[in-house]
Nucleic acid binder design. Sequence first.
DNA 1: GCGACAG
DNA 2: ATCTTGTCGC
Length: 222
Amino acid sequence: MGLALRHAHRWDLSPREAAGLQARLRPLVLAEDALPAEIRAVAGVDVGFEDRGRITRAAVAVLDFPSLRLIDQSIVRQPTCFPYIPGLLSFRELPALLEALERLNFLPELILVDGHGYAHPRRFGIACHLGVLTEIPTIGVGKTRLVGTHGELAEERGSWIPLIDSDEIVGAVVRTRRGVQPVYVSVGHRLSLSTAVDWVLRCAPRYRLPETTRQAHRLASD
DNA sequence: GCGACAG
DNA sequence: ATCTTGTCGC
């Protein structure tokens, strides 16, 4: 309860129609800080698959901030409705994820998504899509690159450099832990890139991936 | 036509 | 994402 979809739409679209919808929703993304003054709960969302991909399992882990203790969770299983197509990930994972969010007892003020946000071919990755539909601030945290190039990143935790695509800064390559591969951070909705990087570092005090993502992944996997 | 390609 | 054993390093 409490979750009101601002721009709900149909999900039974062809890949071509899906790409067109992304272009239509893209202008709704706000890449400026518009978060609540106090953030008490941060959530991580992730999706796993069963039965060789026929079943989609979406999970949401809500953590108290700054303790990062799990305070609420939700797991939803649904028949998979869309194939995996690079650039159209949200049409495969969001239906189940939105259902999981609706079943939450406590809504978070910020969501870290497993996948890119603005660092996307049409600047509308799954983090942007989820943010625009729910109006909850979101951050895209990818484990691998979808678009863009970047230079050498310093080794120390906390260092970051811009991710550039078509002469535009679309995200940041962030070192959340020394000696491990960086993560790709980008704006989802209602915050700036630097604020997004700050929150990812605050939520990933020890491991490569944010605690939010780790918890959600655990729920969506085993 | 030849690669690249989130999860 | 998922299918899968051992292995290198702190």
